[in-house]
Design a protein around this nucleic acid. Sequence first.
DNA 1: ACAATAACTTACTTTATGTAAGTAAGTATA
DNA 2: TATACTTACTTACATAAAGTAAGTTATTGT
Lengths: 102, 102
Amino acid sequence: MDKSICPRFEKAMGLLSQRWTGLILYQLLSGPQRFCTIESSVGVSGRVLSERLKDLENEAIVKREVYPETPVRIEYSLTDKGLALEPLMKEIEKWSQNWLEA
Amino acid sequence: MDKSICPRFEKAMGLLSQRWTGLILYQLLSGPQRFCTIESSVGVSGRVLSERLKDLENEAIVKREVYPETPVRIEYSLTDKGLALEPLMKEIEKWSQNWLEA
DNA sequence: ACAATAACTTACTTTATGTAAGTAAGTATA
DNA sequence: TATACTTACTTACATAAAGTAAGTTATTGT
């Protein structure tokens, strides 16, 4: 009975179940943001955030843009693939509202 | 700018982003199942599966039922709270179909 | 020149997970 | 009667992932 789960589903779940990844993506749904903003609003350490953003860039879910202003501004935002996660996030919101205590 | 994310959402994401938890729940959506079935279909180790099922029982997402047959049969199934995760899982399926390669 | 800020990276510690063996209860087999 | 087998776990130990804190590079403000 080994491995009855769809590999694509498994991959998606593998991405989302990386610690912090879901919260990082949820945070980015509210618009492009810089490193330190994500760090403090999500509560993830810089070390892990840096790692996750690289992974998400490799998956083409997040894009990184450098604005050579002064001081330099680096913004992370969602690609179309990343934006497509919105309905999923809304479902998590719904479930948490309906089934979890405040 | 600390902690701008809704605590309920954060808790929901915390549950789902535990390694294996999402796949275990997805597997249980197809009906009640025993320990060893989940173990092999999901690919999780017994050690972690045992831990996860206990956590999910404590969260009232999964229930455990003992049938004193021979040999004893123990089945894990979703509560209403667990079943309510179905739309969310469907969204993950959709996203994975649309955006991930096979 | 000195302190400050953003965006990281590195070194080190703690926690989580994987692996494999062990346990308990009951059944079937030799 | 003793041995082996099955399910559902637990325990002990090794490895991988995450947390913490300090360090780096570039640039600005005082």
